[in-house]
Every structure is written in structure tokens, then in C-alpha cells.
């Protein structure tokens, strides 16, 4: 892999809640190589959406980045002034939201919303903006005539396509997509994923896909990062991570999804639930649910360890990964 377009080091995001401070993202290290499609996968509540929003620099009012660095194409984003950071939004880094139902302003036609970005942030003339908007609509598989429509006149899939067109408007270096297909039904999901894959190849897109669906990652992404309880536990090329997962959590996640091509096997969900981050455990955060837990796991957080080139996992038993993988395919392993 070549140089990283985005590199995140030791990033933490803290929420102020009634029950005290919660670090929803706590020491994340992540690299997104230029031209890569990175799949950020994890259960709901693991902090992946917070991480995505922290990368944009647009967090809810009670949240803030409490530590760490985000470097995009050589620029340290956290060191920028608010105005400079805002100037770089959408031009360098753009976002595809989860529910484009409410992410498009209901009172403006799509053409107006396109112009707002293209003219307001991209300095295009109105005429040029309209031409570009039509091209973008075509690229995402929408009829440019629909630019004259209001968002509520679109179907769910079309709205999501429109949101993607908006995100691509200014040729951003990096696109962050937060569960871009989750709200869609299976057939439409597939169409949008196909479209995204084609766009990724055509435009040499660098993107982060936040998802809880490992199948989406397998289909679309070149690099995979697995997130658990505010931290990245495994990272590597998708093919490698899926074929040879080194972290027990990744193994468990893969068990939770049916393998259509392989032999039929019982689906084994991971029992238990993620730790309460108000009082995070001192050792490995997965220890309480891990079938391979050892005494050391509950006292020390495992350092990321390489298992293959560009493939690492944060587990004390990385060395025994092969044995653990074999056991992990047995449903009985996961039943306590």
C-alpha cells in the first residue's frame, strides 16, 4: 500500500452526559490509503458514527475531540482554525448521511441544493453548476430532469443517489459514507452498491464506508477496519481480514452473517453486549464476551500486532489466530 491520504492517531471523542463523561471514540488509530475504499465495521453503538462525524469536524453540541490528530493529505485538521477547517469541508472531505430522508432540506428543489454547494462552496457559475449537476445526476443513475423535484418526490433509493451526487459535487479527496444503504430494501441496496463500486473505480475515489454489515464491506471495500467499543481492533486488506481474521471479535462478526457460498452452518451470534463506556474496562474491551479470554486480557489492553503486511489486530493471542479461527467456526465455542 502507498501513502495514506488520511491518517488518524490516538483520536478520542468525549460526550458530556448526565451520567458523566463518555469516550465514545477512545484512542483510534486508522490509515486510509489514497484510492482505497475503507470499510469501517462494527456493532451499533461502537462509536463508528461518532468517529465519522469527528473526521468531518461536525459533532453534536455535547461532544468534542478530547485528544488525537487527524491528518488529511498532509494537513493536521485539529490544528486548523474553525474558519480554515470549514473552508476545507465538502471541497476536500464530504459526507453521505445514513437517512437522506431528512438530510436533504425539504423546502428546496434538488437543483437549488446542488447550486448551493456548487456555487456557494465550489465557485461555479450558475450555468456551469447546472451542467455539473446534470452530469452528477447521470453518474449516480438519476434522470437530470429530476433536479427540478423536491426531495419528498424521490423514492428512498433515489434520495440516497441524490445524496451521493451531492457528496461528489466538488471532487472531494475523501468521501465519508455513514451507513449509506442501511435504510434501503435489499434490491435497491444492491443497485446503489453496484453504482458506488462503479463510481469508485471510475473516479478513483477514496472513501470510508461506515457499516454494520460485513457483507457490504466484502462487496465494496478494499480495506477493512473493525471497531469495537470505541477502538479499532483489527485493520487490514479486506480479502486478508475476511479470509484470516486475527481478532476474536472479527471472527464472531463473520459468524453472525451467513456465508452463501460455503457449507451451511449454524449462525452463532456473539453473546452479551458491549461494555458501558462510562466505566470502560481496563484490559481488552472484548474480554467479557470473548470465548478465548485469558487472565492477561482483563488487565492489559493488547497492543496492535502485525499478522501480515498492513494487517494488524489488537489481541493478546494473535499468535494463535489460526487455532482460534478453527474453534471460532464451531457454534458451541460461542455459547457460554
Amino acid at each position: 500500500m502507498t501513502t495514506a491520504l488520511l491518517s488518524v492517531s490516538d483520536l478520542a471523542v468525549t460526550y458530556r452526559t448526565q451520567a458523566g463523561l463518555v469516550a465514545a471514540v477512545d484512542g483510534v488509530n486508522l490509515e486510509v490509503p489514497a484510492g482505497a475504499m475503507l470499510g469501517l465495521v462494527g456493532e451499533s453503538g461502537c462509536g463508528k458514527t461518532t468517529l465519522a462525524r469527528a473526521l468531518m469536524g461536525v459533532l453534536p453540541g455535547n461532544a468534542r475531540v478530547s485528544r488525537g490528530r487527524i491528518v488529511l493529505d498532509g494537513t493536521d485538521l485539529q490544528a486548523l482554525s474553525a474558519a480554515k477547517r470549514r473552508a476545507l469541508l465538502w471541497r476536500d472531505i464530504s459526507f453521505v448521511p445514513q437517512s437522506s430522508m431528512n438530510s436533504l432540506d425539504p423546502v428546496y428543489r434538488m437543483r437549488t441544493q446542488m447550486r448551493e454547494v456548487l456555487c456557494g462552496r465550489g465557485d461555479l457559475s450558475r450555468g456551469a453548476a447546472d451542467t455539473r449537476a446534470a452530469d452528477l445526476f447521470q453518474a449516480v443513475g438519476l434522470n437530470p430532469v429530476r433536479l427540478n423535484d423536491f426531495p419528498h418526490q424521490f423514492s428512498g433509493g433515489m434520495r440516497q443517489r441524490a445524496a451521493i451526487a451531492l457528496a461528489l459535487a466538488l471532487h472531494p479527496k475523501l468521501v465519508i459514507a455513514d451507513e449509506p444503504v442501511t435504510a434501503l430494501d435489499v434490491i435497491v441496496q444492491r443497485q446503489v452498491l453496484d453504482m458506488l463500486r462503479r463510481l469508485g473505480e471510475d473516479m478513483n475515489l477514496t472513501a470510508i464506508f461506515v457499516t454494520h454489515d460485513i457483507a457490504v464491506v466484502a462487496y465494496l471495500c478494499t480495506v477493512t477496519a473493525v471497531m469495537y467499543a470505541g477502538r479499532i481492533v483489527e485493520y487490514g486488506p479486506t480479502a486478508d481480514v475476511l479470509a484470516r481474521p486475527a481478532h476474536p471479535y472479527t471472527m464472531g462478526l463473520m459468524n453472525a452473517f451467513p456465508d452463501l457460498e460455503g457449507p451451511t452452518q449454524d449462525l452463532a451470534p456473539i453473546e452479551g453486549s458491549p461494555p458501558d463506556l462510562h466505566t470502560p474496562p481496563t484490559g481488552c474491551r472484548f474480554a467479557a464476551r470473548c470465548p478465548f479470554v485469558q487472565p492477561v486480557c482483563t488487565t492489559t489492553y493488547p497492543a496492535p500486532t502485525d499478522v501480515a503486511p498492513d494487517h494488524w489486530a489488537a489481541c493478546h493471542r494473535v499468535g494463535e489466530a489460526e487455532t482460534l479461527r478453527a474453534q471460532a467456526t464451531e457454534a458451541a465455542t460461542w455459547q457460554s
Binding site: M56, L89, R91, S103, D105, R121
Partner: peptide, 9 residues
């Protein structure tokens, strides 16, 4: 959509 407007800079 207000959050998105922020993200659009």
C-alpha cells in the same frame, strides 16, 4: 439537514 449544511461548510 441542518447538520448536513454544517458539514457542507
Amino acid at each position: 439537514f441542518v447538520i448536513m449544511a454544517r458539514m457542507k461548510g
